[in-house]
C-alpha cells in the first residue's frame, strides 16, 4: 500500500518536474540554462489572505504569470493582514494582491488618506525596503455608505452629502465598530448635517443580512464593501464619496525585487483590466455560483484575452 503510494508520488514528482522544465523552456528557449541568471527560471511565491476575493485575485495573477512562463508557488489563505504582513516584510512572498488604503493604514496608522492617487503615493513612501508597488487597478474593495436602489431613487441620492436632503432621520446599520469609526454616523451629522435616527447592529460585516435589512427598510444606510457580490444584482447603490471619508482601497500587487520587468509587465497588464465591475462579477461567481478561484481565474483570463 505504502509502496504503491510512494510510486504514485514519485510519478507525480517526475511529471511536476517535467512540467516545470517545460514551462521554463517556454520562457528561456533553453531548458538547461537554469543558472544563466534569468529570473524567469526562478519560482515566484504568490500569496493571498484568507479572503475569498483576495484568493481569486492571487489566482488570476498566478495564472497570468504562468502563462508568461514563470513558475509560481502558491501560498494562499494566510490569515489576516496582521499575520502575513511580517512575511511580506521578511521577503518570503514575492507577489501579494493588496488594497492601497488598508495596507497604508496597517503600515502607518496616522496616514492622512485622500484620493486614490494620493493614497497610492503615500503607500509608496511607507513601504518597507525591498518591496515595490506595481500599478493599481481601477477595481477597489473598500468601505462605502450604501443605500437600496429604491431609497436612492426616492430621494435622488448620488453622493453621501445628498443624504442631508432626506426629510426623515436615517437609521444606520452595520457591525458594532462602525458606530465609533471616523467615517461613522457622528461624522455624517457633523460634516453633512445628516439627521441620524439611530444605529442598528447587524454583525455580518455587510453580508446578506445587512443587504436584507436595507431592502426591508429596517435600516436606510449600511457599510457594504464595494466589491461585494450584492452589487451584482443591481438593487444597491454605493454613494459617491468625493471628500474621501473612506480610504480608497484599490487592488495593487505588492512585489519583492525577485519580480523582474517581464513579470511586472504581466501583472500590470492584468491590473489594468481589473475594473470595478469586473471584481464584483468575479466575487459574484464565487459567492452565488460557488465556483472555485481556479476556475474563475482561468475563465476570466480566457475571456479578457490579455496575452
Amino acid at each position: 500500500m505504502f509502496t504503491a503510494n510512494k510510486g504514485r508520488l514519485a510519478l507525480f514528482g517526475v511529471v511536476a518536474v517535467g512540467a516545470v522544465i517545460a514551462l521554463a523552456g517556454c520562457a528561456t528557449g533553453d531548458p538547461l540554462a537554469t543558472d544563466s541568471g534569468d529570473s524567469a527560471g526562478e519560482t515566484l511565491v504568490v500569496s493571498s489572505s484568507n479572503y475569498y476575493s483576495n484568493e481569486i485575485l492571487a489566482e488570476i495573477y498566478s495564472q497570468a504569470l504562468e502563462e508568461g512562463g514563470y513558475t509560481v508557488d502558491r501560498q494562499f489563505k494566510i490569515g489576516e493582514r496582521e499575520v502575513y504582513l511580517s512575511d511580506i516584510e521578511a521577503g518570503g512572498i514575492d507577489v501579494f494582491p493588496e488594497y492601497t488604503g488598508s495596507l497604508l493604514q496597517a503600515l502607518e496608522p496616522d496616514a492622512a488618506g485622500g484620493s486614490a492617487d494620493e493614497v497610492y503615493t503615500e503607500l509608496e513612501g511607507v513601504l518597507p525596503d525591498g518591496l515595490a508597488l506595481l500599478d493599481r487597478a481601477e477595481a477597489s474593495d473598500q468601505n462605502s455608505w450604501t443605500v437600496s436602489k429604491d431609497f436612492a431613487e426616492q430621494y435622488d441620492l448620488t453622493d453621501i452629502a445628498s443624504l442631508a436632503s432626506v426629510p426623515e432621520p436615517i437609521q444606520v446599520g452595520g457591525n458594532s465598530e462602525l458606530e465609533s469609526r471616523p467615517y461613522g454616523p457622528s461624522t455624517l451629522t457633523e460634516m453633512y448635517g445628516i439627521a441620524i435616527a439611530g444605529f442598528t447592529p447587524v454583525e455580518d460585516g455587510g453580508g446578506p443580512l445587512t443587504v436584507k435589512a436595507l431592502q426591508d427598510g429596517d435600516i436606510q444606510i449600511a457599510n457594504i464593501y464595494t466589491a461585494s457580490p450584492a452589487f451584482a444584482e443591481g438593487n444597491l447603490v454605493a454613494l459617491d464619496d468625493p471628500d474621501n471619508l473612506f480610504f480608497p482601497d484599490n487592488v495593487v500587487p505588492v512585489v519583492s525585487d525577485k519580480v523582474d520587468e517581464g513579470a511586472a509587465d504581466i501583472l500590470n497588464t492584468v491590473s489594468a483590466a481589473l475594473s470595478a465591475d469586473v471584481l464584483v462579477e468575479l466575487n459574484a461567481k464565487s459567492s452565488n455560483d460557488q465556483e472555485s478561484a481556479d476556475k474563475i481565474a482561468t475563465d476570466w483570463l480566457a475571456e479578457a484575452n490579455l496575452f
Binding site: 457591525n175 447592529p201 454583525e203 443580512l209
Partner: peptide, 19 residues
C-alpha cells in the same frame, strides 16, 4: 440576539470584540 439587534448582554461582547 445582539447579532441582529441592539439588545441584551451580547452587545458588550460584539462591541468589545470589534473595537
Amino acid at each position: 440576539a445582539a447579532y441582529l439587534a441592539d439588545f441584551g448582554l451580547g452587545r458588550y461582547l460584539f462591541t468589545g470584540l470589534k473595537t
